[in-house]
Design a protein around this nucleic acid. Sequence first.
DNA 1: TTAGGGTTAG
Length: 526
Amino acid sequence: MVSARKVFDEMPERNRVSWNAMIVGFLRNEFYEQGVEFFREVVRESSVSPDQVSVSSVLSACANMGAVEFGREVHGVVVKHGLETLAYVKNSLMDMYSKCRCFDHTIKLFRIMGDKDRDIVSWNVVTSGCVTNHNFEDACNYFWVMRKEGIRPDEASYSSVLSASASLAALDQGTLIHDQIIKSGFMRSSCVTSSLITMYSKCGNLIDACCVFEENEDRNVVCWTAMIAAYQQHGCVNQVFESFREMLGEGVKPNYITFVSVLSACSHAGLVEEGFELFNSMTKTHGIIPGHEHSACIVDLLGRAGRLDEARRFIESMPIIPHSSIWGALLGACRNHNNLEMGREVAEKLFYLEPNNPGNYVLLSNIYTNNGRLKEADEVRRLMGLNGVRKEPGCSWIDVKNKSIVFTAQDKSHSRTDEIYEILRKLEELIESEGYVSETQFPNGIVEASRENSLWYHSEKLALAFGILTLPVKAPIRIKKNLRTCQHCHTVLKFASCIFGREIVVRDINRFHRFTNGSCSCGDYW
DNA sequence: TTAGGGTTAG
């Protein structure tokens, strides 16, 4: 860029194309701030007025930086120069607002546009914007409306809708879209195949994820990372490392995200030394500066291994200010190892850093409960209420005959409630006869009857019982849950997979669990 | 000289 600038400065005459070429050059090299500054220069000093090329490019830079204030300024420039009628510019404005988390503005502009002006990019901006803003159902709806309007999806449309399907664990929809992709000839797009791998993986279907990967000849780092992440999510640690080695062997350079998955695999497998080796190799060998996600993996790695003091020292020695996710990993470890003293200290930090996150209150309350200190546990729950923080009520979904049935905890609204509860009562007896002792039996011998009772009627167990009642005998039972599944449900589902001889797949807020023959793909680490 | 898309865990 330095040489480009020199050439530009020495030019006897500069026109709109040379100004724009400079802006585009900055952006292509990811010098977003310089690109924006250069645009300012154009507007301020040059006699040449900006056109759709310069504003679209600079809006893309604002989107990448999340710089909504400057984006608004550019919007003003757009109006001043009468560029707002151009589709290219409108799409860029919509995308800028979407990526700057002002999605309402995106939708407003999209509605104003009307059917005639909307092109495939406009639809893709809105669909991907829904995904970015976690409105996955809306993303799918926009995709299907677009199809109804007769617009042919392209790679970007398929990638976004597959990403939404993955987040919703919507396997039927994802499979239907896969068929459409094959028919429309987009299977060669690495962008589409990596989304397909992730969709199948996050829907609990590792075999199809592998098939898509194997059939794809042109594997770039994103495809490899998608496959490595899939193995990691399914608890296949050996395949994670095998794939990682194979990827390096093929000369594909790992990226920031690849390392998150590989480090996470180390953590789940308890491979502390290997994890540190990989973490150190990021900077030394691969030129990637570790970020918060990687540091959280290391804390998790040490925490799971019970090395809590080392985990804390690691955080305190970090060259960056630790993000709440890093302290969160340590609090999770305190919960797993019942470390009340450290748990209290870490929770205090987290209450300050993210006062509205109910998860931290719940974890501290659980630490107290597991130490038999029920009064303090209730006190934490009360504090949570006083601070106006509310835990989202748990819900589980199960699809039966193309209909989605929702259950909440202790739900008795379903017409087959009696049968559902009867199945759970029988399951409880069977599990107890196998010698299972509930985790509500505390070390000091306290058993809390009401808690025990309510644990048995968590939403995923109700969904499980409904699945057993209604699905064919050999069919897998697929359940989705809006929160993390609890220890009790996890244990019961393991037993259930064995007792009923069924594959049970539970997709919770963080990951999914595939229960077969009494064990879970997460290896009991989640 | 221009806009949109894939891979992350807790």
